[in-house]
Amino acid sequence: MKRRSLLERVRLLGVSGLAVLQAMGRAVLFLGHALIGRSGTRNGFALLVKQLYGVGVLSLPIIIVAGVFIGMVLALQGYSILVDYGSAQAVGQMVALTLLRELGPVVTGLLFAGRAGSALTAEIGNMKSTEQISSLEMIGVDPLKYIIAPRLWAGFISMPLLAAIFSVVGIWGGAMVAIDWLGVYEGSFWANMQNSVSFYDDVLNGVIKSVVFAFVVTWIAVFQGYDCEPTSEGISRATTRTVVYASLAVLGLDFILTALMFGDF
C-alpha cells in the first residue's frame, strides 16, 4: 500500500464527511419535496391503497409468524427463570412488557426493513434505471408526488399497525405456551399482565417508537432507491444499503428512545 501523508488522510476524511453531509442534505430536500405541498395527482388515494397493499398486507405473513414464535420463546425462557422464584404467573407480565416496549417495535422495524424496505428500494431503483421516473417528469408529473409520497405514507401508516399486530400475536403465542403447555393459571397470567402494563407508559410509548421507526426506515428505503445509481449493480448496492442503514437506525434510535421514555425508572 502506498504511504499517504497525514494531511492527505485528513483531506480524505473531509471528502467523505462532505459526501455524507451532501447525501443527508439531498435526503432532507427529497423528503420535503415529497411530503409538502399539493399532491398534484387526483388519484392519490388509489395510489396510497396500492402501496398499503404492497408495503403492509404483503408484510403481514412474516410479521405474524415471527410474532407468534417470539412470543412463544419469550414465554418459555421467562417461565424457566421465573419458576425458580416461584412467580411463574408473572410470565404474562414479562412477555407483554418485553413485546410492547422493545421487541414489538424493534423486530417489526427490522423485518420491515428487510421485507418492505428492500422491495421499495429495488422497485424505485428499477423505475429509475428503466427511465420511468424521467418519463414521468417529462409527462409533467412530479415523481416525488406520484411515486415517492404514496410509498412514504404507506410505510408511515402500516408499520405502527404491523407492530401492534406483532405484539398481539406475540402475547397470544406466549399465552398459548404459558397456559396450555406450561400450566400457568390463566387468570393470574392475564391479571398479572393487566396490573403491570400501563396504557400510557407501555402501549403508547411502544406505538411512538414504531411510528419513529416507520418514518426512518421508509425514508431510508425510498431515498436509497431514488438516489441510487441506475444500473443493476447500483440497485443491488442500494438495496443492501437500505437494509443495513435501516436496521442500524432502528437499533440506534431504539436505545435513544428507550433512554428518553424509560430512563428515569
Binding site: 403492509g56 403481514l60 407483554a96 410492547l100 402500516s158 405502527p160 399497525l161 404491523l162 401492534a164 399486530i165 405484539s167 398481539v168 402475547i171 392475564w190 399482565m193 393487566q194 396490573n195 402494563v197 400501563s198 396504557f199 407501555d202 402501549v203 406505538v207
Partner: peptide, 15 residues
Amino acid sequence: AGLLALLLLALRVSG
C-alpha cells in the same frame, strides 16, 4: 386488523 390489535393492547393487555 391493525386497529383491532391496538384496541386489544389497550383494553385486554393494559386493562
